[in-house]
Nucleic acid binder design. Structure first.
Lengths: 187, 187
DNA sequence: GTCTATAAGTGGATAGAC
DNA sequence: GTCTATCCACTTATAGAC
């Protein structure tokens, strides 16, 4: 606590996150992370017991924040919920979000088995008013996906400058708002 | 051409696809594929020169079909385009589609660099009427994502039985249909 | 807190017998 | 067309010096 402490641990997290997003979790070796930081692999093992531990440290804060959101959300207006979720993924957890999206497959095999899919599901339920209607459920998902897309390079071309988080939120709100009469489409 | 030929090649493709979807491309070793088929790794190398070649063989038919769709699409009604796309990803290319979605990161590193992202972008452009409006662009993407989600376990819970491709198509059509007046949301 | 050295294992890929 | 046997690069992870 007292006195100066090296920030190596945080630098490891930072570089690891970057590489995991860029190349994927499995493709990124500890050697590579160490080289970037100009330390040795062994130094990494001083700060983290396993490679998996790095991922855990990366995602746990995000999971906690999502949990808070989920506890607060019930009873709140839908657009407030969506806005707060948008703030989360666009804010300091943006990179973590990008990591999770880009490495779902890898996460499955990890012990952590991040709670994220389950949390997302609960969020679906909260913002989809009538979850009896399959179309409404899909719209709820898409509202969240809209927000995710607004912040992720996943299905996006890189040079999409105008696609701000605000726009994504607008579209998300449209999707989450109740339909007029027929839930279907115009003929 | 004439005479009986072993179907090992196709069985390799089948098993590999399954494992790539389930565990991810990198996590799936050739040893594992071989074991499932009860052959040796070396046998795999008779049919495919590299691990990457398996992926190529898996995606190239899909790419061709998408290319056909893209050549046919211009001038066609939007809902026809969406329907045909839905048929594609729900039909025999469903698994391939799931593979691509689940392994975007891995594909980036491959030589193939599948044309899929670029094809998707062209499809975006085709179904988004007014691509000056960022919200319209995002909606076009979401229309396609809706179709993709309707067929993929990506952000979905597993036990979502009612979420048929038809529903997804409906929602996609809504999204791709022009807005009434304001492109924004109700205040 | 960071290092060197190395263990122990897995990966993709090849040579050559049958 | 499939096998055995092997190569070698590279991985995570540990032991122990400084």
């Amino acid at each position: 606590m007292a006195g100066r402490r090296s920030d190596t641990r945080e630098r490891i997290q930072q570089v690891a996150l970057e590489l995991f997003i860029d190349q994927g979790y499995e493709k990124t070796s500890l050697r590579e992370i160490a080289e970037r930081l100009e330390v040795t692999k062994a130094a990494l093992y001083y700060h983290f017991r396993t490679k998996e531990d790095i991922v855990v440290s990366l995602t746990e804060d995000f999971g906690d924040s999502l949990e808070e959101l989920l506890e607060w959300a019930p009873g709140q207006p839908r657009d407030e919920i969506l806005r707060r979720f948008a703030d989360l993924v666009a804010g300091r957890f943006g990179p973590v979000m990008a990591f999770i999206q880009a490495n779902q497959n890898a996460m499955k095999e990890l012990q952590v088995k991040s709670e994220f899919p389950e949390q997302l599901k609960r969020l679906f339920a909260l913002i989809s008013l009538d979850d009896r209607d399959p179309a409404a459920r899909l719209r709820a998902r898409l509202a969240l996906v809209a927000i995710l897309l607004g912040n992720s390079p996943m299905l996006l071309d890189e040079e999409d400058d105008e696609m701000s988080g605000e726009v994504a939120l607008q579209v998300a709100l449209e999707l989450a708002s109740p339909r007029s009469g027929s839930p279907g489409l115009a003929p």
